[in-house]
């Protein structure tokens, strides 16, 4: 008389997917960040090579589909959860002191996620879409290999104040999303232990600060130099 609905459908299963995709996205953030860092040193070659590698290397291509799927799954699942959660309390409180017992970002994950989603759409449009389907000038490196010059496009974009600011705000949103999200994913998966959970939490806070901060430092650097 098992009522297992396996890994779909139940509230817990939905959350496992959230956590797994969320953590996968976190690992992607690290790779992406490492690739972006050459922008800080003005290393056009390294950046373009990275962009090229990312768009052409077969294994990366495969992983990138997983990435798109994750973003989609994480977003849709997240919004479904948020809707269910709202429906679970149709008549709200007249007075609700949420700050008394939970931090702000944990209470606003859907909002923060949506900001991130908007950012992703615009971000993908201006770089990923252009790289794949739009017009990107060609660039040849010292050995004469031909690349698309994403570097120039990126630098040009970040020199626009509004774009750079938008990028920074979005990173703030992502940082807050991860402030709660990182450790939360471990709790969701049941990876909790009195000994290790404090470390995971600390790691999560570090991650939530450092990664978005480094991302945001790039447009700021470009804008200001």
């Amino acid at each position: 008389m098992s009522t297992s609905r396996g890994l779909f459908g139940t509230s817990l299963a939905r959350k496992y997917w959230m956590a797994l995709t969320g953590l996968f996205l976190c690992s992607f953030l690290v790779v992406h960040l490492l690739g972006n860092l050459p922008l800080l040193t003005g290393n056009q070659e390294a950046f373009n090579a990275y962009a090229h590698f990312m768009t052409t290397f077969p294994l990366i291509k495969a992983v990138s589909y997983l990435l798109y799927a994750s973003i989609l799954l994480h977003s849709i699942d997240g919004l479904v959860l948020a809707r269910q959660n709202m429906a679970a309390r149709p008549a709200g409180y007249v007075k609700y002191n949420g700050a008394a017992n939970a931090n702000w970002s944990s209470r606003n994950m859907a909002l923060l996620g949506t900001i991130t989603l908007l950012f992703l759409i615009i971000h993908l449009k201006s770089f990923w879409f252009e790289m794949h389907f739009g017009f990107v000038p060609n660039w040849t490196d010292a050995e004469g290999n031909l690349y698309k010059d994403l570097y120039t496009i990126t630098v040009a974009a970040f020199q626009q104040t509004w774009y750079a600011l938008f990028y920074v705000v979005a990173m703030l949103g992502l940082g807050l999303h991860l402030w709660h999200g990182f450790a939360s994913a471990f709790q969701t998966m049941g990876w909790s232990h009195p000994r290790y959970t404090p470390m995971i939490k600390a790691l999560g806070y570090g991650f939530a600060i450092m990664v978005p901060l480094l991302f945001a430092s790039i447009p700021l650097y470009i804008l200001l130099t």
Binding site: S11, R14, L81, Q84, N85, G98, N101, A102, T188
Partner: peptide, 14 residues
């Protein structure tokens, strides 16, 4: 019809 868990931890506090 209960909601899902976002791990806010509010329950534990209250």
């Amino acid at each position: 019809g209960f909601g899902n868990c976002t791990n806010t931890g509010a329950c534990e506090v209250e």
